[in-house]
Design a protein around this nucleic acid. Structure first.
Length: 572
RNA sequence: GGGCCUGUAGCUCAAUGGUCAGAGCAGGGCGCUCAUAACGCCUUGGUUGGGGGUUCGAGUCCCUCCGGGCCUACCA
């Protein structure tokens, strides 16, 4: 039994995420966690909300709430939706937790003691009307290059030129529109990543099996231009982990907090500590996942994230870990995803374009979305959600291939033998061929799941379902029954056992349907198949089952058209 | 501007430099009647974005052009 630590990139707190966010991290992480648990491994699966930063403060202000209250509420909302999608986190934490405050300050202090923190005085735009420093992109003005009047302080969206806020003509706050801005001096802490460059490069180079997407992004940041740069890890904000604290090896940082990207990944660790606290366990319980000197030496750590998160997970966070000079667990494998597009364009949170997680669940149960999203996961390039494809895929794969298989087996049995696994008889060559095929396919499926090849795993699973239909079609127990009822009984017994096997194999993708199938088969035997012949004799003759209701209903054309219209425009 | 990814059948995607470029869906035909008008079998469909090159051999490697996307360090 292996020990597997799994983290999903933590979703930002300001609002409900769309399906693109879901498929890029939380959902594939859940697939992997469920699979590894099914295989009998000890799994720790951690996610959290990322609660600090300017957008959180602004969103809270807009909602007319104190930021702590706003974040607590939104955390509750996101946790509820995560449950709705059956995301099986061992703990869904909060980056604003006391645990994260303590750990973030701990890492900062260690880095300071190692000489890896620099104090830098710089000038930043301050908006008097908003009473806050503004990040570059929260300043708007006229582009000096093309004259576009809504250019942002980091880049002009119109001509794509890189800008500095001071380049803008007639700069104004994007928050309030105020032009009452001034450049103010402010002191910040920088993480001296340049000092760690060689060690980071060496570490990245040792990860030869990582996805191209992951390593290419890391190497670009390491080597491009002047190479890896030091990074500011504090901000002039009120909401966050205070940068000045007892034992801090610096002074004069009162009123400042750590940058979200410094404290967010630390929440992976803190979230595990929160898990221990929530279960009344001591520190050793979480440290055995994170401290290689306290039991984590045999842990395999896998991170899941969208491509936009890669630099922070390949460089900044490892710089924090390595720089601390303490035996914390480093990530072993980073699975990164491209983006999911929506019907010819991008999902857009600001424009409300596309399907958001809460809306998705209000339309259809989690399994429908899980199946489509995972079987179309954007692993190699950006991929595309269209309603036609979603409808076709769900109707065909889930309703016709799997759902109907369960239906035809159980209903046939009920009508000919009653709702007990029939006894007697022998299966024939076709059953042997089926078992041989499944033997190959199940091992291939395992290989893809272990390699986190999500699409390939989905395709293999579907082929496993299809094999059941092929068997029934060629064995034709409904015909055999007329001549040799005992033989038909054996075939049906095999069919019912296939339903149980499929429930087990499918659990990581469609956990609700899996549970319903097992319940219908009257068993809680979820043991992963060894030799297939054995796995297909778990349900003995005489075992009672129930004929389940329709497992997956089909999506009608009218519904699809209705949804298409509903989600094309602005979210209301 | 720079870097990276990407372009394969009507659609969504596969293919360690090595048989005739494969699947699923959609389309066509046949079969079956247990089943959610479901299932199975067969089948149509490709100058692998264009052009050039390396190689015994290129979807794959190189150059170039065209299209799509992402990143570019203060959004997260």
């Amino acid at each position: 039994m292996a020990r597997i630590l799994i983290t999903s990139a933590i979703p930002y707190i300001n609002g409900i995420k769309h399906l693109g966010n879901l498929v890029g991290s939380q959902l594939p992480a859940d697939l992997y966690a469920r699979y590894m648990r099914m295989r009998g491994n000890e799994v720790m699966f951690i996610c959290a909300t990322d609660e600090h930063g300017t957008p959180a403060e602004l969103a809270a202000a807009k909602a007319g709430k104190p930021v702590a209250e706003y974040c607590a509420e939104m955390h509750g909302v996101q946790a509820e939706i995560a449950r709705g999608f059956r995301l099986s986190f061992d703990h869904f934490g909060r980056s604003s937790s006391a645990r994260n405050h303590r750990l973030t300050q701990h890492f900062a202090r260690r880095l300071g003691e190692q000489g890896l923190i620099a104090e830098v005085v710089e000038k930043q735009m301050f908006s008097r009307a908003d009473d806050r420093f503004l990040p570059d992109r929260y300043i708007e003005g006229t582009c000096p290059n093309c004259g576009y009047d809504r250019a942002r302080g980091d880049q002009c969206e119109n001509c794509t030129k890189q800008l500095d806020p001071t380049d803008l003509i007639n700069p104004r706050s994007a928050v309030s529109g105020s032009t009452d801005l001034e450049l103010r001096e402010t002191k910040h802490l920088y993480l001296r990543q340049r000092v760690l460059k060689e060690r980071l490069a060496e570490w990245i180079d040792s990860k030869t099996g990582w996805p191209v997407l992951t390593t290419s992004i890391a190497k670009k940041w390491l080597n491009d231009g002047e190479g890896l740069q030091d990074r500011g890890i504090t901000r002039d904000l009120a909401w966050g982990v205070p940068a000045q604290f007892a034992g801090a090896p610096w002074q004069g940082m009162e009123g400042k907090v750590f940058y979200v990207w410094f404290d967010a990944p630390i929440e992976y660790i803190a979230g595990t500590a929160e898990w221990a606290d929530a279960h009344g366990l001591d520190d050793a319980a979480w440290e055995r996942w994170w401290r290689t000197d306290k039991g984590a030496h045999d842990v395999t750590y896998v991170q899941f994230m969208g491509k936009d998160n890669v630099p922070f997970h390949t460089l900044s966070f490892p710089a924090t870990i390595i720089g601390s000079d303490e035996p914390w667990k480093l990530v072993d494998y980073i699975k990164s995803f491209n983006y999911l597009n929506y019907d010819g364009g991008q999902f857009s949170t600001s424009q409300g374009r596309g399907v958001f997680m809460d809306q998705a669940l209000s339309i259809l149960p989690a399994d429908y979305w899980r199946w489509w999203l995972l079987s179309h996961a954007p692993e190699n390039s950006d991929s595309e959600f269209t309603w036609e494809n979603f409808q076709a895929s769900v109707n065909k794969d889930l309703a016709d291939v799997l759902g109907n298989f369960v239906s035809r087996v159980t209903k046939f049995c009920r009508s000919k033998f009653g709702e007990l696994v029939p006894e007697g008889g022998q299966t024939g060559e076709r059953a042997a061929a089926l078992i041989a095929e499944l033997e190959t396919r199940v091992r291939a499926y395992e290989g893809h799941m272990e390699a986190m090849e999500v699409r390939k795993a989905a395709a293999e699973l579907r082929a496993i379902w299809v094999a059941g239909n092929e068997y029934l079609q060629s064995a034709a127990p409904w015909t055999v029954f007329k001549e040799d009822p005992e033989r038909a009984a054996a075939m049906t017994r095999l069919g019912l056992n296939l339903v149980r096997l499929y429930a087990v194999l499918s659990e990581p993708f469609i956990p609700d349907a899996s549970a319903r199938m097992l319940a219908a088969m009257g068993t809680d035997d979820r043991s992963w198949p060894g030799p297939i012949a054995e796995a297909l004799s778990v349900l003995p003759a005489g075992h009672a089952f129930e004929t389940p209701e329709v497992l997956f209903r089909k999506i009608a054309d009218e519904e699809r058209e209705d949804w298409q219209k509903r989600f094309a425009g602005v979210r209301t």
